[in-house]
Amino acid sequence: MDIFVTLLINGLAEGALIFLMASGLSIILGLMGVVNFTHGTLFLWGGYIFVWIFTFTNSFILGVLGAIIIVFALGAFFEKFFVSRVYGNVPAQILITLGLQVIFTDLVRLFWGATPITVARPSYLAGTWTIGGVTIVQYRIFLIVVGLLIALGIHKLLSKTKIGMVIRAGVQRPDMVQALGINIKLYFTLVFAAGAALAGLGGALYAPLVGSISSTAGLHNQVLAFIVVVIGGMGSFIGSAAGSLFLGLMGAAVAWYAPSLAVVANVTLMALVLAFKPDGLFGLAVKK
């Protein structure tokens, strides 16, 4: 029973982190038809900027905010100057975002070095609770809460606001959105940057969980997010939420019961889903 609760919390916390990446990735894919291969780099920048500010100011909140803001700007820069030039050309989109991924990952190594940097959790989140013999790590609960809040926030944004309406409409008919007098390119930049900011937040929260950040963390987490998007159905927000939870829980269970299978489990899951539902669990037809 104890182990069950621990695994549940671990899995949910892990899922929340993956969700921060996967949701942005999925919405960008749905609205613009772009697979953003810079997502891992944006995650990485979020992590490093957080660590950088956190070590300087000793303020966890400032670090997280700084990461979100700077990575948001970085995302807007990527969209405005590179991705927007190749809309409609899928191979070029993949190639150009891959190129940016290479450059900006290497810039991380240039600025902060190639060796991992350690980072502690803030004192007020570093503790544990013991409830009925189960040790609960506060930081993991914090991650679950953040993930939940963000999920609710995105859901509200998509279903209740004008921005959400434009996004949902743009996924289906970007040309018609324009013909109604709405500058969809502005929304493209905004959504891309917001997705980036979510990845940046993911990176910032990831570093204290693992206790360190290194330049390989970006790609690793990007792969997880890709698997989630494929499993959940490309462009589906609900799918990315469900997929993240599922992958997080499965990851926790496999890590406990069969650690040697940790690597293959995700891919096996992905292959199974594709075998039975090629469009993903919450398949939403993406153009092209």
């Binding site: 038809g33 697979v35 899928v90 494929v230 293959v264 995700n266 891919v267 594709l274």
Partner: peptide, 26 residues
């Protein structure tokens, strides 16, 4: 068998990236 099911350049790129990373990890 895995990739050509889902169809589409986008899905294929994402899935093959994951497969490659798994091989490297292994």
């Amino acid at each position: 068998k895995i990739v050509l099911r889902g169809g589409g350049v986008i899905a294929a790129a994402m899935i093959t990236l994951a497969l490659g990373e798994i091989a490297r990890n292994t």
